[in-house]
Amino acid sequence: MTNLSRRDFLKLARDGFLWLSGALALGGLLRFLDYEPNPAPKTEFDLGPADQYPLGSRTLLTDPPAVLLHTESGFSALSLVCTHLGCTVEQNADGFICPCHGSRFDADGNVTHRPADKPLHSLRVEITPQNTLRLRLD
């Protein structure tokens, strides 16, 4: 360091400042682009009066894509969003099939054919004090 000339020092300082401002500007740009302007997608859905869905029924919902089941043990729901890459699976005789990449699930949502490797998510269904159903995605 002792033989760093004045010229070299100034050059180093200039380059250092240029790189630093470039890095700061890039960081600012990335933060600028990282903002989410859209409201987060809905996670709660009102499904209306519970007695609309009699015991033993199996109802296809479109928003959110899910199947609502009413069994002896109460209400439950199975998400129809494929766990592979997010297309909506379609119902068939044995369960569900994804139209995008051919994953298959049985009627309980367990994987029977790749590429998906996780079962369909089960969703929470709550009965409100007004005896209506509320579906939660989280």
Partner: peptide, 13 residues
């Protein structure tokens, strides 16, 4: 993903 789409559900946003 946020850089490309802006977050949320891609088909909406």
């Amino acid at each position: 993903f946020r850089l490309a789409v802006g977050g949320g559900d891609a088909c909406q946003t």
